[in-house]
Design a protein around this nucleic acid. Structure first.
Lengths: 233, 233
DNA sequence: CGGTACGTTGAGTCATATCAACCATAGTGG
DNA sequence: CCACTATGGTTGATATGACTCAACGTACCG
């Protein structure tokens, strides 16, 4: 019964936008179902930290997770967010190294923990899976490279505009057109790599210009083309 | 005869620091040898450009290649360098997308061009190769993430110091202790993401402080610990 | 010999960080 | 219930790192 349930939830993950598990055979999915552990994490829980040895990777079933590195003076640099269908913590397994990022729950999250050996075995025995996982890593790599370019060349204002566009595209909006992700000003600043005060000033400038609407942590994009222009897109 | 030569040169690549090809069977190496094209590229040659559809990837046998993206107003952002044993252009093959970087020869380079299908076939049929390639991609990803953190949080001076350390570690020094890679001031600025004038000023400051010695494009590191301190390492 | 690319230096400006004060909110413990 | 504290948000003043612009030097190349 429990296994059946697990199996069903794997299906629900597989239905997500990504295709990582699409090429798995029934017995491979069975094996995952039998060996995974599903757990619920509250907001602000730390899932893993820089330096941890990972025994497995996580598949996000529900919620939002922030993945970050700790830099100078402990200041966090947000690298990416993970949402349902994404996997996290796989890098250290593939590389067989300690984690080089930490991850924290932003919104109550359900994670499936899948043992490292299963990932490695699948890569070795299922070529299609290997390709799909590689595609996923390459996608992350491409995004990281783009971000290096942005952060090195664009002004803070441009980066803030771009981040708003990305958050909009990645998480969508709710019924009131507010972004479906809630971040503190400090977290926003830890994405673009700037001071909190700068983010606040830039957001309020965007608001004054009628590009966005603010109410607490809720952000509503009014003028996407205007933001895109500022972002240089 | 030609094939025999090709085979030998594959061996020489396999002997390099990386292990990507270590797990290949003899017949797999044979297939690469039979299908690869080895070519010499002069300094300043463009190997491929952003947007190109890649028919294969390249294995660097000799020389140094600069890999970069073109950002705002055509300003180049250097992403990484490739040297003997490294492979380039594989990302677009795995992702089945146009190239998102360009690459240019810095020092006369010999490249082996290996058809895309061979890479994909190897990933699908040789699990150990798949893992090794994945490790390599993950290494690049890890480095990219670190660099995001650096560029977002460190001052230009800190980044310059760090780059000097990295160039030293990656390329080593010649008999006179000069860095084994020769870059224009503009290229240096395109790594750290700053203005050429800033690089010049910072280098000359390092020189005044006795941290480095300069003569044209030659850079000699005198005080590695001092640089590491400035870099925050 | 003139042209082109690269390197250097100085002066002025601007974007962004830093510092400081203050407000709002929510949770805590006596 | 209230004082207390912690956290997050905002605004203003000030400082400064880094960019831009401009001029000039240098070296190599046809």
């Amino acid at each position: 019964m429990i296994n059946d349930q697990s199996h069903i939830s794997c299906d629900s993950c597989m239905a997500s936008s990504h295709h990582l598990f699409h090429h798995l055979k029934d017995e491979e999915i069975q094996e995952i179902s039998l060996n995974k552990i599903t757990e619920t994490y509250k907001r602000a829980s730390i899932i893993y930290q820089e330096g941890n040895r990972m025994k497995g990777f996580f598949c996000v079933q529900k919620g939002i997770v922030k993945i970050y590195k700790t830099g100078i003076d402990g200041k966090e640099q947000i690298i990416r967010f993970a949402q349902p269908g994404d996997i996290i913590g796989y890098r250290s397994i593939v590389s067989n190294e300690p984690a080089c990022t930490s991850s924290e729950v932003l919104e109550e999250t359900i994670l499936c923990h899948i043992p490292a050996e299963i990932l490695l075995k699948l890569v070795k025995t299922n070529g299609d899976f290997a390709i799909e996982l590689m595609k996923l890593i390459c996608k992350e790599l491409g995004e990281a490279n783009s971000y290096i370019c942005d952060i090195a060349q664009k002004t803070v204002k441009g980066r803030v505009a771009e981040i708003l566009i990305h958050l909009n595209d990645d998480f969508g909006v709710d019924k009131d057109n507010n972004l479906n992700i809630s971040l503190t000003r400090e977290e926003l600043s830890n994405i673009v790599g700037t001071a909190t005060e700068s983010i606040i000033r830039i957001l309020s400038e965007f608001k004054t210009k009628g590009l966005i609407e603010l109410s607490g942590r809720k952000i509503k994009i009014l003028e996407k083309p205007g933001l895109k222009f500022i972002a240089g897109l």
